[in-house]
Design a protein around this nucleic acid. Structure first.
Length: 671
DNA sequence: GTGTTTACTTTTTTT
DNA sequence: AAGTAAACAC
C-alpha cells in the first residue's frame, strides 16, 4: 500500500485524516469529500500498522457501509476481512448475537421490523382487552420508540397505553424477539452494566469512527460513549440533520464538544460538487435557519454555472410531463446520461404519480425507498417460515404463516391456544406442546378443534424439521427456501388466492424465486463472512433494499431522505408547495420548519450542474384536486439566480420524433 | 372456517 | 381512488 496522503487531500482533509489520536470532530459540509476523508482515514490507520480488527466505523445505512469498505479496499488494495464497518443496527445485532445469554435472550432471537412490531402491538392489545376503536398501533409504535430512547416528554403515554407498552415488551421477551430499538438499547445496557464486557469491546475497538453524526439519537450517543476509549472521530453536518423524527438530535455535536474538552475540531467547507449558483442558492436558503453552526460552502473552481430553473405547472400531471420533457431536452442538448439524473421527492406518494408518467413515456428509471422487496407479502411469508423455523417461539412469524397456505386453523383455534399461552406467559409453540399433553384437550368433543389442533402440531413438527436441516446438515438458505415453497404448496396457494388473474400469482412466485436467487448469490459471495441462517435473517431484516447491480443506465427517482449522500449532475425537486415541502405534518409536529428547510437544503446540494425546481398549482389528493400555494423556500432562494421555465419551449424533440417514426414504421410493416 | 360485501381512512421521512 | 378492516352470509 503506497498512498500519498498529502497530495490526495486538501489541507483540511489531510488534517482530519492524520489526526488519529484523541477525540476529533469533523464538520463536513455538503460535497466536501466526507466519505473520502473517512476512507482515507481508515487507510491511514492501516498504513500506520493499526490492525483491522481494532477499527470500528458506524454508519446509518448499509449502502454507506458497503461503499466505505469498497473504497477503502480500492485505496489500500488489501483484503478487509476484519474491518468492522457496519450500521448501528447491524452492529447491535452482531453484539447481541454474541452476548444474548447475558441479557436473558437466546442467540436464535428474531429481529422484528416495523410490520412485525405492529402485529406484536396488536397482539398485546388484544390480550389486554385494549379497546380496538382507540388503538392506533402506528402512533403507539412511535411513542414506544421515543420512550425507549429516553425522550420522556415525546413519549407521553396514558396509563392504559403504558400498560400496553409493558405488555408489548414482555411479549417480545417471551417470543425471544427484539425490535429495532432493542438493537441499540440492549447492547447499550450490556456495556453500561457489565464492566468486563465493556472492557473487552473497548480493548478491541481502539479506533472508532461515526458517520452522519448529526443523525445519532441520545441513545446512540450514549452507546458511542460506552464503546469508545479516547480515539473517537465523529463526522457530521448539522445542516443535514433530517432524522429528528426518528430520535436524532444534532445537538449531540455540542454534547460531544462538551464531553471532550481537548478535542480537535475541523471544518470542511470546500465544495467539490456543485456550481456556484447552486452553492449560493444552498447557502442562502440554509442561512434562514437560526440554530446552526456557521458554515459557508465555497467552490475552489469558482464557476458560476447555469441558473436554477423553476417549472410551474397547472397540475401534478403536467408537472410530471414537463419534467420528462425537460429531461429529454437535457439528454439531447447536453448528452446527459440517465445515471446523471435524479428526481428527489419529499414523499413516496409523490413518487408514485411521477413513476406512472415515466412508465408511460418509456423512461428507464429506478426507485429507491418506498416499500422494499423484503416487505412484499409473499416474500415476508417465506421469510416468516425461516424465522419461525429458527425461532419457533416467534409468535408473530408463526401467526403469519400458521394458516398460510390454509390449513383450517382459524381464529377459534388460535384463540384457544393463545388463552393457554397468555395464562402461562409462554409462546404459542409451548402452548401447543402443552395442549398436546393435556388429557382434557385430547378428549374434548369438538371435532373441528381436534382437526385444527392436529394441523397445528404438524405445523410445528414441520418447523422443527427445517430447523434441524439448518443446524445439523447446514442446509443452505436458498435450498431451504425452495424446499419450503415445495413442501407447503405455496405455488398452489398463490394460484388459489388469485383465481381471477393468475398473472399476479406468477408475479409473486417470481418474487420468491428472486428471493431464493439472491440468497444463493449471498451464499456464494466471497465477501460474506458469516453464512449461516442467523446472519442471513439479520441481513434481510436490516436491509431496506438490495442494490441490484444491473449495468443498465437509469434515472433515479427517490425520496430526499434516501438521496442523502448521493449526487447527480441534474436534480429535479418536484412538489415545492406549502404542505409538501415543508410538509404540513412535520411542521405540525415539531412546531418549526427548520428541519424541512434542511431537507430542502439537502435536496439542493445533491445537484452538481443544474437544478430544476417545480410545483403544481393544483394537485390530486385522495381523489380530488386541491389548490396549492408555493413553498416558502422558493422566496428564500436568491431571485437573480432563478429562471422561469418557458411553457411553450417544450416542442417535440429528437427522442420523441424518433419514437414516433419507429412506431409508424412498425404499424406499416405490421399491416 | 371461509368468502364476500360494506364502511372507512389514508402516507412524511426509515434503521 | 384504493386498499384495509370489520361485518355479514354461507
Amino acid at each position: 500500500m503506497h498512498i500519498d496522503f498529502q497530495t490526495a487531500l486538501d489541507p483540511e482533509q489531510y488534517a482530519a485524516v492524520t489526526t488519529t489520536e484523541g477525540p476529533v470532530l469533523i464538520i463536513a459540509g455538503a460535497g466536501s469529500g466526507k466519505t473520502r476523508v473517512i476512507t482515507y482515514r481508515i487507510a491511514y490507520l492501516l498504513s500506520r500498522g493499526v490492525p483491522q480488527e481494532a477499527i470500528l466505523a458506524l454508519t446509518f445505512t448499509n449502502k454507506a457501509a458497503s461503499e466505505m469498505v469498497q473504497r477503502a479496499h480500492d485505496l489500500t488494495g488489501l483484503p478487509l476481512k476484519n474491518l468492522m464497518v457496519s450500521t448501528f443496527h447491524s452492529f447491535g445485532a452482531w453484539m447481541l448475537r454474541r452476548e444474548a445469554t447475558t441479557l436473558g435472550y437466546r442467540p436464535n432471537f428474531s429481529i422484528y421490523d416495523e410490520d412485525d412490531r405492529i402485529r406484536a402491538i396488536r397482539e398485546s392489545a388484544h390480550e389486554l382487552g385494549f379497546p380496538t376503536e382507540d388503538l392506533d398501533p402506528v402512533r403507539l409504535s412511535q411513542l414506544f420508540s421515543a420512550r425507549r430512547a429516553g425522550y420522556e416528554k415525546q413519549g407521553e403515554l396514558s396509563a392504559r397505553e403504558m400498560e400496553l407498552y409493558e405488555r408489548y415488551r414482555k411479549t417480545l421477551k417471551v417470543y425471544n424477539a427484539v425490535d429495532f430499538d432493542d438493537l441499540i438499547a440492549l447492547p447499550l445496557e450490556l456495556l453500561q452494566e457489565h464492566d468486563d464486557v465493556r472492557a473487552r469491546y473497548r480493548a478491541r475497538f481502539r479506533y472508532v469512527m461515526i458517520d452522519e453524526f448529526q443523525d445519532t439519537s441520545l441513545q446512540q450517543y450514549a452507546f458511542i460513549r460506552q464503546i469508545e476509549s479516547g480515539n473517537i472521530c465523529v463526522v457530521g453536518d448539522d445542516d443535514q440533520s433530517i432524522y429528528s423524527w426518528r430520535g436524532a438530535d444534532f445537538r449531540n455535536i455540542e454534547r460531544f464538544e462538551l464531553d471532550h474538552p481537548g478535542l480537535f475540531e475541523i471544518k470542511l467547507e470546500r465544495n467539490y460538487r456543485s456550481t456556484g449558483s447552486i452553492l449560493t442558492a444552498a447557502n442562502t436558503v440554509i442561512a434562514h435557519n437560526t440554530r446552526r453552526k456557521k458554515k459557508q460552502l465555497w467552490s475552489p473552481q469558482g464557476v458560476h454555472g447555469t441558473p436554477i430553473m423553476l417549472i410551474d405547472a397547472e397540475d401534478d400531471e403536467e408537472e410530471a410531463e414537463r419534467i420528462i420533457a425537460t429531461i429529454r431536452e437535457l439528454r439531447f442538448r447536453e448528452h446527459a446520461d440517465w445515471d446523471d439524473i435524479g428526481i428527489l421527492v419529499r414523499t413516496n406518494s409523490l413518487a408514485e404519480g411521477i413513476e406512472e408518467k415515466l412508465v408511460e413515456h418509456n423512461v428507464p428509471y429506478r426507485v429507491a425507498g418506498g416499500p422494499s422487496f423484503y416487505q412484499r407479502r409473499e416474500v415476508k411469508d417465506i421469510v416468516a417460515y425461516l424465522k419461525a423455523a429458527v425461532n419457533p417461539d416467534d409468535d408473530v412469524s408463526v401467526l403469519r404463516v400458521l394458516n398460510v397456505p390454509r390449513r383450517g386453523i382459524g381464529p377459534a383455534t388460535i384463540e384457544f391456544l393463545s388463552n393457554i399461552a397468555k395464562d402461562r406467559s409462554v409462546s404459542l409453540r409451548r402452548a401447543a406442546e402443552m395442549a398436546r399433553q393435556m388429557v382434557g384437550v385430547a378428549q374434548a368433543k369438538d371435532g373441528h378443534l381436534q382437526k385444527a389442533l392436529s394441523e397445528v402440531y404438524a405445523f410445528f413438527d414441520y418447523l422443527a424439521q427445517i430447523r434441524m436441516a439448518f443446524l445439523e446438515e447446514r442446509r443452505p438458505v436458498s435450498i431451504a427456501i425452495r424446499n419450503i415453497v415445495e413442501d407447503v404448496g405455496y405455488w398452489q396457494y398463490l394460484l388459489e388466492e388469485h383465481k381471477k388473474n393468475d398473472k399476479v400469482a406468477v408475479w409473486k412466485y417470481r418474487n420468491i424465486e428472486l428471493l431464493a436467487a439472491s440468497a444463493e448469490r449471498w451464499e456464494k459471495d466471497p465477501d460474506t463472512f458469516e453464512k449461516d441462517i442467523f446472519a442471513y435473517l439479520a441481513r434481510i431484516s436490516l436491509t431496506v433494499r438490495d442494490e441490484v447491480g444491473d449495468a443498465e443506465q437509469r434515472l433515479s427517482l427517490l425520496t430526499i431522505h434516501a438521496a442523502k449522500g448521493l449526487e447527480f449532475d441534474y436534480v429535479f425537486i418536484p412538489g415545492c408547495e406549502n404542505g409538501i415541502l415543508p410538509h404540513a405534518r412535520s411542521v405540525e409536529e415539531s412546531g418549526d420548519i427548520e428541519e424541512e428547510r434542511r431537507l430542502f437544503y439537502v435536496a439542493v446540494t445533491r445537484a452538481k450542474r443544474r437544478l430544476f425546481i417545480s410545483r403544481a398549482m393544483q394537485r390530486k389528493k385522495n381523489g380530488s384536486f386541491q389548490e396549492t400555494t408555493p413553498s416558502p423556500f422558493l422566496n428564500e432562494l436568491p431571485q437573480d439566480l432563478i429562471v422561469m421555465a418557458d411553457k411553450q419551449a417544450q416542442p417535440h424533440n429528437e427522442d420523441e420524433l424518433r419514437r414516433e417514426f419507429f412506431s409508424r414504421l412498425k404499424s406499416r410493416l405490421g399491416a
